[in-house]
Design a protein around this nucleic acid. Structure first.
Lengths: 187, 187
DNA sequence: CGGTATCCCATTTGATACTG
DNA sequence: CAGTATCAAATGGGATACCG
C-alpha cells in the first residue's frame, strides 16, 4: 500500500518521475536555469511556502541535480565571518552537470507549454542567446531532410538495458504490429 | 490551504505541471506514444491500479491530450453492435494533436533519463525511425555552428504575454546581472 | 536572511471488490 | 475487458511560528 517506489523501476523515465513527477520540482529547476541560487530567490519567485521549498530543494540535491554549497567564501571580498553584516545567506544552490543537462528537456517542455498551455498573448518568457541574441527554443526531432518525427513514425525496440522478459514482450508486440501493417519494415 | 491552482498561474510551464506534475501522467503518455490504446494495455504495461489509471486517463482527456473514443465502429467492419463478439473494449484512448505534440518533450526527457537515471546497461528502450531505421533521440538546442546551448548561455526576457509587473522584475534582474558581470565574480 | 519545526488538510495512490 | 466504488495510508502542500 505504500507508494510504489519509482526509483526502483527499470524504465529510466519512470525513475525520473520519482524526482520530477511532482508539481514543484520542474519549476524550481526553471528558477535555477533562470539564475536563481539562493533560497529566498526561489521562494520569492515561485511564491512557494518555505517548508515545501526546503523539501523540494533537498530532493533535487539528493537526486544530484543541485549542489548545496556553503557560501561566504564564494569569490572575493569577505572571508566568511559576516554572519549578519551583508552578503547574506548560508548556502547557494547550484546546478550540477546533471541538473544543467536537464535544460534541453526543460526547453522542450517550455516549447510545448508555450504552444498549448498559454492563453492568447503568447509566451510569458522568451529565451535568447546571450551571444547572438537569437531566440532559443527546443529543436524538434526530425529526419535529416527536415520532416518532423512524431510518435507514429517511430518503432520501439528493446535497448541494451532491456531484460529478457521485456525482449519477449517486444517480440510479441512486433509480431502484432506486422500483422496489423502490411509488412514494410525499415529494419 | 487548498493547493495552489497551477492552471491559474501565468507561466505556461507551471500550468503544464497541473497535468504532468504527477508521477503517472507522463508514463501514461509514454505508453500512448508506444502504441497503447486500450485501458487494459495501459494497465498491464504500467502495473498501475485501475482506479488510478482511470483517474489519470480522465485527467489527460480533460486536458485535451487524449481522446476517448467509443470503439466498435472505428474504421470498417462492424457497425457497433458487437458488445462481446470480438474487438473487445468500449473505448480507445487516442492521442490528440496536443498529445502528439508532446512527443518531442517526451523524447528530451527520455534522453536525459537514459543518460542520468539508468544503471549501467544502458537504455531499456530504443526508438528508431520506421522508415530509415535510424535511432531517434531528442536533438539538443545549439547554435547554428553546432555549439550546444546551456542555461548559462541564455538570457531571459519578458515575452509578449508578460505582465507589466513581470517586465519590471525583469528590468531589475537585468540591472543586477550587469552589475554582477561587470565585477566578474566567477560565478 | 535562510531555513527548520509544527499542525492540518487535500490529493494521490493503492488494494480490492464489484458491475455491465 | 473496461472500468467504477470504496476504504485506508502516505505524501504533498500550505500557513505560520520560530531559531541561528
Amino acid at each position: 500500500m505504500a507508494r510504489t517506489d519509482f526509483t526502483r523501476m527499470r524504465c529510466p523515465v519512470a525513475r525520473s518521475m520519482a524526482v520530477l513527477g511532482e508539481r514543484w520540482a520542474i519549476l524550481v529547476l526553471r528558477e535555477a536555469f533562470y539564475g536563481a541560487k539562493r533560497f529566498e530567490e526561489f521562494e520569492r519567485n515561485l511564491g512557494i511556502a518555505p517548508n515545501i521549498l526546503s523539501a523540494r530543494l533537498r530532493s533535487l540535491v539528493e537526486h544530484g541535480m543541485l549542489d548545496r554549497v556553503p557560501v561566504g567564501g564564494g569569490g572575493r571580498g569577505a572571508a566568511e565571518g559576516e554572519g549578519s553584516g551583508r552578503g547574506g545567506g548560508r548556502h547557494e544552490y547550484r546546478l550540477t552537470e546533471k541538473g544543467r543537462d536537464f535544460f534541453p528537456a526543460y526547453l522542450a517542455l517550455k516549447r510545448w507549454s508555450d504552444r498549448w498551455m498559454t492563453d492568447a498573448a503568447g509566451p510569458v518568457v522568451v529565451l535568447v542567446d546571450r551571444e547572438t541574441g537569437a531566440e532559443v527554443t527546443a529543436p524538434v526531432p526530425s529526419r535529416p531532410d527536415g520532416t518532423p518525427l512524431g510518435p507514429e513514425d517511430v518503432r520501439v525496440l528493446p535497448g541494451p538495458g532491456a531484460s529478457p522478459a521485456m525482449r519477449r514482450r517486444f517480440l510479441l508486440l512486433a509480431a502484432d504490429a506486422e500483422l496489423g501493417e502490411a509488412m514494410d519494415d525499415g529494419r
